[in-house]
Amino acid sequence: MAIIVGSAAIALPATAQQTPPAFEPRDETPEQYPPGPNRDDTFYFCVACHSFQIVAQQRMSRSRWDDVLTWMTERHKMPDVQGEERDKILDYLSTAFPETTQPRGWKNPFAPK
């Protein structure tokens, strides 16, 4: 099968050597995560580099989420997103994954459902 790319048709060689990846992460979609305004934009912004699973594990205040974006830019060279775009991302993160005083580590396995 040839893939049509750009403005011209390019037939790619059928003999391409492809090493199987060491591990293939499963697809993630925004719908797997809590609904809310700006979810999809936030999702696609973050998954450029890492899975959203690591985002969804967190529970932080807006100010600490803001620190995370700064840290991501300083430590991992994430684009320095500012202004309205940053606000949208922070709105979603601090609403979907707000700070909790409950640690995640202990859950009563017999808790009434």
Partner: peptide
């Protein structure tokens, strides 16, 4: 990166068979 391929395949609506040799920076038709 496998996730990238999967995401792009999903966006195109089918498997990108020769992903290993697909030139970078081109828009799938």
């Amino acid at each position: 990166n496998g996730a990238g391929l999967a995401a792009m395949s999903a966006a195109v609506g089918g498997t990108i068979v020769h992903s290993a040799t697909m030139p970078g920076g081109l828009i799938p038709a």
